[in-house]
Simulated assay, not measured.
Amino acid sequence: MFATLALAASTSAAGNPLGGSGGLIAFGVQIGLILIAFYFLMIRPQQQRQKQQAAKLDATKKGDSVVTAGGILGKVTKVEDTTVEVEIAPNVKVRVVKATLTDVTPLNGGKPAND
C-alpha cells in the first residue's frame, strides 16, 4: 500500500510542468488571498468605525447627551481639549476624559420614536 502511494506521488510530481514548485506558488497565492480577505472583512471596517468614533468625539459640544464607558448618562456642560464636564444629575457635574465617551447624541439630533 505504501509503495503505491509513493509511486502515485512520484508520477504526479513528474507530470508537473513547473518541476514541483507549483505547489509552493499555489500556497503563496492562497495565503495572499486569505490576507486580502482578512483585510477587507476585519481590518478595514474596524478602521472606519474608529474614524467615525473619533469624529463624533471631536464634534462634541455643550448640550449634547453622552454615555460614558462606565455607563453614566449625562448632558455636556463644558468641553475642553481632552476632557468634558458632564451633568449627571441636577447640580452634580463630573469631569470625564473624552476618550471614555462611547456615544454622543446631539441636542436636537435624536431619532424620533417609532410610534
Results as ranks from 00 to 15, higher is better:
residue 1 M to C: 05
residue 1 M to V: 08
residue 2 F to D: 15
residue 2 F to P: 06
residue 3 A to Y: 04
residue 3 A to N: 12
residue 4 T to F: 09
residue 4 T to L: 09
residue 5 L to V: 07
residue 6 A to Q: 08
residue 6 A to Y: 04
residue 8 A to T: 11
residue 10 S to F: 12
residue 11 T to H: 04
residue 11 T to P: 02
residue 11 T to L: 10
residue 12 S to R: 15
residue 13 A to Y: 08
residue 14 A to D: 05
residue 14 A to P: 00
residue 15 G to P: 02
residue 15 G to R: 10
residue 16 N to Y: 03
residue 16 N to M: 08
residue 16 N to P: 00
residue 17 P to R: 12
residue 19 G to R: 10
residue 20 G to N: 12
residue 20 G to Q: 13
residue 21 S to M: 13
residue 21 S to F: 10
residue 21 S to W: 12
residue 23 G to K: 04
residue 24 L to P: 00
residue 24 L to W: 11
residue 28 G to M: 13
residue 28 G to F: 10
residue 28 G to N: 12
residue 28 G to H: 06
residue 29 V to R: 04
residue 30 Q to C: 07
residue 31 I to W: 08
residue 31 I to N: 09
residue 32 G to K: 06
residue 33 L to E: 11
residue 33 L to W: 11
residue 35 L to A: 15
residue 36 I to G: 06
residue 36 I to C: 08
residue 38 F to P: 02
residue 38 F to I: 06
residue 38 F to K: 05
residue 39 Y to V: 00
residue 39 Y to P: 00
residue 40 F to E: 13
residue 42 M to G: 04
residue 43 I to T: 15
residue 43 I to F: 15
residue 44 R to I: 04
residue 44 R to Y: 13
residue 44 R to L: 12
residue 46 Q to D: 14
residue 47 Q to E: 14
residue 47 Q to K: 15
residue 47 Q to L: 15
residue 48 Q to G: 07
residue 48 Q to K: 15
residue 50 Q to A: 14
residue 51 K to A: 15
residue 52 Q to V: 13
residue 52 Q to L: 15
residue 53 Q to T: 12
residue 53 Q to S: 14
residue 54 A to Q: 12
residue 55 A to S: 14
residue 57 L to C: 01
residue 57 L to S: 01
residue 57 L to G: 02
residue 58 D to Y: 04
residue 58 D to I: 07
residue 58 D to S: 15
residue 60 T to H: 03
residue 61 K to S: 11
residue 63 G to R: 01
residue 63 G to H: 03
residue 63 G to D: 01
residue 64 D to Q: 07
residue 64 D to H: 15
residue 64 D to S: 10
residue 65 S to L: 08
residue 65 S to T: 09
residue 67 V to Q: 07
residue 68 T to R: 03
residue 70 G to C: 00
residue 70 G to H: 05
residue 72 I to L: 14
residue 74 G to E: 02
residue 74 G to R: 00
residue 76 V to E: 06
residue 77 T to W: 01
residue 77 T to P: 02
residue 77 T to Y: 03
residue 78 K to V: 06
residue 79 V to W: 05
residue 79 V to K: 07
residue 80 E to P: 00
residue 81 D to F: 01
residue 81 D to E: 13
residue 81 D to A: 14
residue 82 T to F: 06
residue 84 V to K: 03
residue 85 E to L: 10
residue 86 V to I: 13
residue 87 E to G: 02
residue 89 A to I: 00
residue 90 P to D: 14
residue 91 N to C: 02
residue 92 V to C: 03
residue 93 K to G: 02
residue 94 V to E: 05
residue 94 V to Q: 06
residue 95 R to A: 11
residue 95 R to L: 09
residue 97 V to G: 02
residue 97 V to I: 09
residue 98 K to S: 10
residue 99 A to Q: 08
residue 99 A to I: 05
residue 101 L to K: 03
residue 102 T to S: 05
residue 103 D to N: 07
residue 103 D to F: 01
residue 104 V to W: 01
residue 105 T to Y: 05
residue 105 T to L: 14
residue 106 P to V: 07
residue 108 N to H: 13
residue 108 N to K: 15
residue 108 N to E: 12
residue 108 N to C: 03
residue 109 G to P: 03
residue 110 G to I: 07
residue 111 K to M: 10
residue 113 A to W: 12
residue 113 A to N: 08
residue 113 A to P: 01
residue 114 N to R: 09
residue 115 D to Y: 10
